[in-house]
Amino acid sequence: MAADRDDGDAGAPFGRRVFLALLGLGAAGVVWGAKAQDLMERALGPITAKDGSGLSSLLPVGRFRIYTVTGGFPTRSTDEYRLRIDGLVDRPLDLSYDDLLSIEPSHLTRDFQCVTGWRVRDVMWTGVRLSDLLDMAGVKSAATALHFTSFDGLYTESLTLDQARRDDMLVAYQMEGEPVSRDHGGPVRLYVAPMYGYKSLKWLDGIEVTSEVRTGYWEQAGYDTDAWIGDSNGRDDEPVG
């Protein structure tokens, strides 16, 4: 601080230094913030992701950010809930919430990675394997892809049949041991573990088996259809799976 000793009435240009220091800090945050965030998430993520009070979810660390493409958040009770599986299948299905619960459940604990950069580590999902549902319905030989719809009335997604048959693709009804909340896409959503979050369609109400890939909501806006984490959308995040 010796350099600040500007004698006389004017004094040192302190305000400008604070201003410029903040700009420097901001620029450093842009360039190295991803690294800093990653370190903080490793340290704090296990605490904040599981904190039931919801208070720590306000810290910008290891937290879900709630997105919706419509004006609001669609609500459907478990009683009203139906999942239709149709298209190129032998036996179209129309399942209730209880029907889903009666099918052998699968558990999957994986990171959730958003294409905008945030990642929540080690989220536990419970639901039905997509491949089990496909086997129940019986997929016809002409089928190559799935088209998913949301009861928000707007959002859609797609997977190829080969992708959908992987064992890390869930029709999920529990997250962290609790029913999937409305904000997180409940009562039932898709969880596509190895791909960016936009593939994990929320508020799932329809699966149509199709003869070709019909791209989904964000893919029509330019995002990659095969959205492998770390190998699509020009990103190099650590893969999940």
């Binding site: 604070v18 201003f19 410029l20 220091a21 903040l22 700009l23 800090l25 901001g26 620029a27 945050g29 842009v30 360039v31 190295w32 913030g33 991803a34 690294k35 800093a36 965030q37 910008p60 905008t116 950069g117 945030w118 959308n233 020009g234 990103r235 190099d236």
Partner: peptide, 30 residues
Amino acid sequence: GSLAVLLGTGIVMRWFEPFPDTWRTGATFA
């Protein structure tokens, strides 16, 4: 200073295409 940083990082968040993707994450962080 904070408002200037918020404006700059907000622009990177909103118009992220020209920037490396770690910048998008970093801008959100800052």
